[in-house]
Structures are given as C-alpha cells and as structure tokens.
Design a binder for these strands. Structure first.
Length: 901
RNA sequence: GCCGGAGUGGCGGAACGGCAGACGCAGCCGACUUAAAAUCGGCAGCCCGCGAGGGCGUGAGGGUUCGACUCCCUCCUCCGGUACCA
C-alpha cells in the first residue's frame, strides 16, 4: 500500500505538530543577556536565537519522512503529473560532492514544480552492476553483491542528509533479480522480434585476465592494467541489439526539447551519409582469376574518374584471395599490426598513413581503368563496405596516402576556366594537376564547379555529374544510390560476472535455445572464485554452466556472458513507475500516464551513449507493444561535472574525492546545497573549491535574522534604525515591495531556465535590501511582511530546511495552523509594484560611454535626444561638433552619438 | 585525430548585439569591542594623474556593425565523449 498523496497528507501535517515549533513564540522573544564589564555596571545587550542547522535539519527530515511528504501517489489524477528524473548513481561507496552537485538543483526543481501545483514524481535508484564491484571483489576478496549492497545502504543514509524529496518507495536496484529478470525478459522479446542477434566481434583480450575494457588497456603499447601482458584481439561470438534499424528515426528530434549540442553529437554519432555504392571488379592476374566484385561506398560518386587506387580495410574478406604470393608476407604482417591498433589511432588524420599494396588491381566500371589495390588501416571494416575508391585530389586522407606512396593525383572537379584542367578524357592527369596543391582541392566543391578529366561527363556541374554517373552505373548493375551510417549495432555481451546473465542455453542438438519466460530469472550464481584474475568466474562455475536444454532436455550449457550495464539504464525510469510488479516489467497504465519523463537531468558525458540507447530502447519497446511513447525524455538538461581540487575527474585512485560530510556538519545541508547552486552555471561544473561557502552561510544567517528578528540592529551599524536619507516611511514600503516583486519576477525566470546561480544572487540582493530596512520603522510594515514571506517561498526549493523552519515560526506567530511551506503555492508577481518612474540611459560617443542621463520612463526618443544633447558632459565631449548620426538603440535603452572625423 | 563544450578582475562568476565585472569569496579602510572573533558600513579591473579626468581591458589574430564578452573566419589552451568506466 502506498501512502496517500499530499491532499490527504497535508491533513496529517496539520494535525501533527512539531515540538520545537511550539516553542517558537519564546524563540522570537529575545533572551536578555547581562554582560559584566570591567568597569562594573552591567551592560544589557540583546541577542537573538542563532541559526542552528544541525538542530533544524534532522528534525525536519524526520518530520517529512514521518508524514510521507515525499511519497508520490502515482494514481492521483487531481493534479497534473510531472516526472522529474535525475540519472541514478553508481553505488561507488560514499556520496561525494559531485552527487550533491547533481541532485541538489534537481531537487530544487522538483520542489519548485510542486509549488506550482504539480503532482511531482522524483525517484532514485542505483545503477548497481558493473566493473568496479568486480575490481573490489578481486582486490579485497569481497563478493561484488556484498560490496555493492553495503555501498547502497551507506549512500541511502547519506542521501537523506541532503533533504532531497526522493520517493524511496520507487527505488530501483539493478543488481537485484526483481530488476534484472526483466532485462532478460526484454532480451527474449527483442530476440523474438529480430532486434537481437549473435555475431562475431573482436574484443581486447588478455591471456590472464580475459576480456578488457578500454580503460583496462594502458599505454601506447596497449598492455593489461593488471598483469602488464600485451593485449591481443580475439574474435568472439557475441550478442548485438539492432540499433541500426532505428538509425533514421533516431535522427528525428522533433517533439523533444533537447540541448542543441546533444542533438548534434547524436546526429554525428549516427552519421548518416548519402552517396553511391559502386561495384568495381578485380582484374585477372597470375594468381587470381579476376572478376570478383569489389563494392565501395562513396559520398562523392562525381569523383569516380579521379579514383587512382583502391583501399581495402586490412580485415576485408577479399584480402586473402587477392593478395599476390610475393606480397603475402608483408600483407600478413600489416594485417596483424592493424588488429592491435585502436580505432581512434586508425582514424587519426594526424598520424602518418600506412598501408601496403597487395599486388592486385581493380577495374573502374565507368572508365575501364586498372587501379592498384592497397590495404590500409585508415579504412575500417565496419563502415560502409570496408573498401574505398581513393580519390586523392578530393579527399584529404587519400591525398596523404597518395603523396606518401607516390600515386597519381588526378583533379576531376574545378571551377569553370581553371587553367590546366582541359586534358583529354581517360588520359593521365592534365599538366599541373599532378600533386595538386591541397588548398582548393578536396574542400567540398562549390555549386558552380564542374567535372573535368571525366570523359563524357566533363563539363557537367559536379552534383549533376555525380547523379548521371550513378544512373549510368545502375543500368549495368554496377552501382546504385546508397545510404550508410556510422552507427553500428550495439554489442551488449560482456565477458564478466557482475551483470545480467543472458537467458540463453547452448545445446548440441538444438543450437541456441532461449530460456523459457517461465524459468526467468536466470539467477546470477553467488560465485566469487576469480582464480586470482579478472577472467569471468562464470566460465568455471560448473553448477551454473551445466543445464538441461529447455527444448530437448539433453545436456546443454549456459551462456556465460552478461549484459552491458547500459541495458539496465536504458529503461529504468519505466520501472520506477512499477515498483514491485511481478507479472511484467512495467505497469502500462502508469507509463502511459507518466511518460515521457518531463525533465531528465544528468551529466553531459552521457550525451551520446546512454541517451541514445535509452531512445533506442523506448522505440524498440514501443514496437513490441510494451509502451506507447516514441521518446523517453521530453526535456533534457546536461549539468556539468564537479572535478577534484586538482582539476581532474574525482576518483578514489586519484585521492581527490571531496566528502561533503564535514561541510554539512559545519554549515548544514542548506548551505551546502545553496553553495553548489551558487558556484556557477549548472551546466558548467568545474574544479571543486569550498572557498566562498561562508558567503552563502552568511546569506542564510541574514535571512534568519530578517525573519525572526525584524526589529533588531547590529553592533556598530551607524545607520541603525534609520531609513535611507531622503526616504519616508511610505517610500520605503514601496521600495521594499518593488524589490520583492522584481526579485520574484526574475527568480521565476531563472528557475525555469535552470539558472540557479543568478537566482540566488537575486535572492541575496533582496535579502540585502531587506536587511538594510531591518530595525527601521519600515520593518513592521505589511510590505515588509509580504516581502519576507516571498523571500522564504522563493528560497524553499533551494534551502528546504531553513525555509520550513522560518515558515513554521511565521505561522505560529500569526496563530495559523501549520502546513508545510513545500506544499505552499508559488507567489504571483504584481506587475504594478515593479513599475519605474524614471530610467537612466547611458550615452556613448562613437561607442564609448561618456555620460548617463535620467529621463521620465515614458520619455519619447526625441525627448531623450534633447536631454542627451543638453547634458553638460556631452556638450563638453562634443566640443562644438555636431553628431553625424544619433542612434537611439533598444527602444530608448541607450544612445550612441556618431561623430566622424 | 574526430564530435561537442568552455576560456571575462587575485578567485567563483554576471551581462536580450547596447553601461563589462551583478552576486559572492579573498583584500583594504572604518564602526562595535579593553582586545580579538563574530557582526555592521564603506572602498575596490589594470595603468597614468594630487585631482578633475584620461588611456587600456572579456585566450590570440582578423572580419561584420553606429556599437561585439556576445555574430563570422583562423589559431591556442583546457574539459567531456570516441562504442567493454558508468
């Protein structure tokens, strides 16, 4: 049973009463303290109760908990649902300042939305499978499950000190069978739908420690991080999800509000290119009969006549049969070298090009020209067809290769009338085009450029010529228009223990057999025998391995690979909506109502992979009939990352992890929350430094003093008790009201735009203004009271404890029954309070600031211009000259006088 | 390398193409205190000038504009991602 939502809960709140709040009347009164002085006579001073977060915060956290203030009634239809999701953390052990940085503003947003009347769902969980638990297991001989669950326990406790409004009832822990069984279930559905398949793929392999992750391969010579052994490549049969099926749909971001950089990065990652597939044929030679098809993909079919050689990926299937016997040794050596290089290395345009000729030729289908075939690692087997036609005159990489190997460079595109490009068709390059200078050559051609050196196509515009060439090839079945993508299918197999087991059995009789749905979950055994290495212990667990075939009941063996942890994170927000559901992964009624997630927040480091996989999962789940949505997250925001004080990413191994515990016990959670929001723009992050936290603490102390002791004054304040010079009580009240409403207007805009740093700056300004009036006659005014109330309401999402405490005292002082500030409504701006009577207009001469004039707010441009030209400083600066132009910019916000000469 | 982001006082940062440096930290001066801490008020980009004032300033160099931290081009540095870290 879930607790009732706020509607009912608030009734509980009113009936409940907090002891300390009952004392609030005495709190507001002052304690008289008699201080004995050396001179003898007693100096009677007053002191207010001091702000003590260590007393306030735990008390309210316990109270909120008790009242179920943070539980969301998912079935409550009386208010609009608002699903706010923050990326769930990896349970690394302790919450560090980075977790606070991620969660605090999200929590403020959740509270802000709730103050607008939304039914806010703000869940949390743990991304609990993955490598670090296995590393801990090997290092400390502790079971990954024990390590992980201990960490989770600890982090749950630490999370509570933040005062975040997480709904813990919906918690997801991915390493538990009640979660990962649904990974298995989804995998089986994907398999059924043809979205999952098995294929060979290479992994980085260490003979001692098995498969290695990228981060486990160290140094330029690529050695294993544990044993230092040279890393090899090994081809394994592995499971893939067919992400490429959705390539085009994933390019479509209409209907979701995501940051431009993320959309661009995903678009580039998917990497759709349109062009043509062209079929070359191999030429006969002593060792090869010829006539084999050699397919290439090109985005530039218009440059076909400029192809002067061919390049195959070293892994290309035809390499073996095409290689001439006298080239075999060299080719084999090169292929072996290429296998150990990373893709990043291979694609680097910086690195000198390498490759070898294989002693065979290909025939250009349009010109009949014979082109030598090379293999080179800058061509990847997995992209396009794994083979290219090289056009060195119009491609930077091909140019570099041709230059190094002394190959022909033939220019085939030029602006009309470019000298030296009128060679006869089909012949060698025209004079002056050999080794053509790089500058103009391979930049994408201008619209008016024409084909040259291109047989019958010479003289056509490049685009048009390209289409004509593909059309001609298509007629002889030697080409067609084609689209390729950079994105590959998602390899989800991991040769590791601490992950979701695949629900697959291998049977000698029946082959690959899915575990029947009714036999799920396939439990991860409690094996911990790592045999002193990182090799997957499942491979050695006979009890797990041996199984009867679900199909024929004969002896069979289980799949020992587990799933990529990105599988877990690709649908967890659906599961939050279905806690404890045992007859399916998700509750359709709930996901229909609550998804897509209204707002997702998380690190920019997830801009592509996690966010793309999540989009893929949503679409795949839609296509197998599980959900109705096309997209997982309506609006996305990427916050920055807090780095260690050394500017490096926080990690235990670097020893730069910042524990917020000490700051919290010294200043309180509210101060730490505010400081993290105040540091800078949330999407920026940056190196951690606690210097400046005192300023935020002072701000809260001032807010405290304003709220509980409006008539107090400070020692040494020369202006104490006096209104600003020239201001009457009425002026002061209006000024207070204007400040409060202007702040509300601006703070609301900042919350909506996630600009928490400027939001707090404006609250500080308001509190500075109020503080100026503290102790003056204006402090008792209704405007003052309104402003203080507004300050607390605006502060409530960001600093939930102090605002709740001060709010409860206000209610008590007014004799009003208590109800939480966090279910209070966000105030509304009174536009009339903010109206200004005059405006100050900066005046520039030739763009340099020279003076400012003050004019009535409604002054016309002509009035303004007259005032400007009469201003003494301007008259002096003009020194008798007449402005050539007078620019009144931005609807009278600035005047610029342009004086020539 | 490629893709994305960021470079502004001593520091964190602010600024719809229109007053660069809001807000805060550190600093300096003053008030309160026997004193210190805390608190309160004030000053404060850099250079020249007693001052009035002037000059220079948003990573570097160009460009567009009456006007550029903001837009465009080239470059430098740092951060994130680069498909088995999550």
């Amino acid at each position: 049973m879930r607790e009732p939502g706020f509607g009912v809960a608030s009734g509980d709140l009113r009936s409940g009463w907090i002891p300390a709040s009952g004392e609030s009347c005495t709190c507001i009164e002052r304690d008289s303290i008699v201080t004995e002085t050396a001179e003898g006579p007693a100096d009677v001073r007053t002191r207010i109760e001091r702000y003590d977060p260590s007393e306030i915060e735990p008390r309210w956290q316990a109270r909120w908990d008790e009242l179920g203030l943070h539980r969301t009634d998912l079935s409550d239809e009386s208010r609009p649902p608002y699903y706010l999701l923050t990326m769930y953390p990896y349970p690394s052990g302790d919450l560090h300042i980075g977790h606070w940085y991620i969660v605090t503003p999200s929590d403020a947003l959740a509270r802000y939305r709730r103050m607008h009347g939304d039914n806010v769902f703000f869940p949390i969980g743990f991304d609990a499978f993955g490598l670090p638990a296995e590393n801990a297991a090997i290092k400390n001989k502790i079971h990954p499950a024990t390590w992980t669950m201990k960490n989770i326990e600890n982090m749950r406790r630490q999370f509570r000190t933040m005062g975040a409004m997480f709904d813990w009832d919906a918690e997801v822990v991915t390493c538990q069978p009640d979660y990962y069984r649904w990974n298995q279930w989804l995998f089986l559905k994907f398999l059924e739908a043809g979205l999952a398949y098995r294929a060979m793929s290479p992994v980085d392999w260490c003979p001692n420690d098995g498969t290695l992750a990228r981060e486990q391969v160290e140094g330029t010579d690529r050695r294993c991080w544990r044993c230092g052994e040279k890393v090899q490549k090994r081809d394994l049969e592995q499971w893939f999800l067919r992400t490429t099926k959705y390539a085009d749909e994933l390019l479509d971001f209409s209907g979701i509000n995501w940051p431009e950089p993320v959309r661009i990065m995903q678009t580039n990652w998917i990497g759709r290119s349109e062009g043509g597939e062209i079929v070359f044929t191999t030429a006969p030679s002593d060792h090869h009969a010829g006539g084999e098809e050699l397919r290439v993909f090109t985005t530039r079919p218009d440059t076909l006549f400029g192809a002067t050689f061919m390049v195959l990926a070293p892994e290309h299937p035809l390499v073996g049969s095409l290689t001439a016997p006298d080239r075999a040794a060299e080719v084999e050596t090169y292929v072996a070298q290429a296998r150990v290089r990373t893709e990043i290395e291979r694609l680097s345009t910086d690195r000198e090009k390498t490759g070898v000729a294989i002693g065979a030729d290909a025939i250009n289908p349009i010109s009949g020209e014979r082109l030598p075939i090379f293999i080179a690692d800058y061509v990847l087997a997995g992209y396009g067809t794994g083979a290219i036609m090289a056009v060195p005159a119009h491609d930077e990489r091909d140019f570099a290769f041709a230059t190094k190997f002394g190959l022909t460079i033939r220019r085939v595109i030029a602006a009309p009338g470019t000298p030296g490009t009128e060679a006869a068709p089909g012949t060698e390059a025209a004079p002056g085009t050999q080794n053509a200078p790089l500058d103009a050559a391979f930049v994408s051609h201008a619209a008016d450029e024409e084909l040259v050196n291109s047989g019958p196509y010479s003289g056509m515009l490049a685009d048009e010529g390209g289409r004509a060439i593909v059309a001609a090839l298509a007629e002889q079945s030697a080409g067609r228009t084609a689209v390729t993508y950079r994105i590959r299918d998602w390899l989800i197999s991991r040769q590791r223990y601490w992950g979701t087991p695949f629900p697959i059995v291998y049977c000698d009789q029946c082959g690959i057999v899915p575990v029947p749905e009714g036999q799920l979950p396939v439990l991860l055994p409690e094996t911990v025998d790592y045999q002193g290495s990182g090799d997957n212990p499942l491979n050695h667990d006979e009890a797990f391995l041996r199984v009867n075939c679900p199909s024929c009941d004969g002896p069979a063996r289980r799949e020992t690979d587990t799933m990529d942890t990105f599988v877990d994170s690709s649908w967890y927000w659906f599961r939050y909506l279905s806690p404890g559901k045992t007859d399916g992964p998700i509750d359709r009624a709930m996901t229909d109502r609550w998804t897509p997630v209204d707002q997702y927040t998380g690190g920019a480091e997830h801009a592509v992979m996690h966010l793309l996989y999540s989009r893929f999962f949503t679409k795949a789940m839609r296509d197998i009939g599980l959900v109705s949505e096309d997209e997982p997250f309506r609006r996305m925001f990427n916050q920055g990352q807090i780095l260690g004080a050394d500017g490096e990413r926080m990690s235990k191994s670097r020893g730069n992890v910042q524990d917020p515990g000490e700051l919290v016990s010294r200043y309180g959670a509210d101060t730490v929350r505010l400081f993290l929001m105040f540091m800078g723009p949330w999407d920026q992050g940056g190196p951690w430094s606690a210097s400046g936290i005192g300023g935020v603490y002072r701000f809260l102390n001032r807010a405290w003093a304003i709220a509980i002791d409006p008539h107090g004054t400070d020692p040494g304040d020369q202006e104490a008790g006096r209104l600003p010079a020239g201001q009457g009580l009425e002026d002061a009240a209006l000024a207070i009201r204007a400040a409060a409403h202007r702040t509300l207007r601006d703070v609301t805009i900042d919350y909506e735009g996630f600009r928490f740093n400027t939001m707090l700056a404006k609250l500080m300004e308001l509190s500075n203004t109020l503080y100026r009036y503290r102790g003056t006659p204006a402090a008792g005014s209704p405007e003052w009271d309104e402003a203080v109330g507004m300050l607390l309401l605006m502060l409530a999402p960001a600093a939930p404890h102090i605002s709740e405490e001060l709010w409860s005292r206000r209610l008590a002082a007014e004799g009003v029954e208590w109800s939480s500030i966090h279910i209070e409504r966000w105030p509304t701006v009174d536009a009339s309070a903010v109206v200004e009577e005059t405006r100050e207009v900066p005046v520039q001469i030739n763009g340099k600031l020279r003076d400012k004039v003050v004019v009535p707010a409604e002054a016309s441009d002509a009035d303004l211009e007259a005032a400007v030209l009469a201003a003494p400083k301007i008259v002096a600066a003009l020194a008798g000259r007449t402005p050539d132009r007078v620019i009144v910019a931005g609807g009278g916000r600035l005047v610029n006088l342009v004086v020539c000469g």
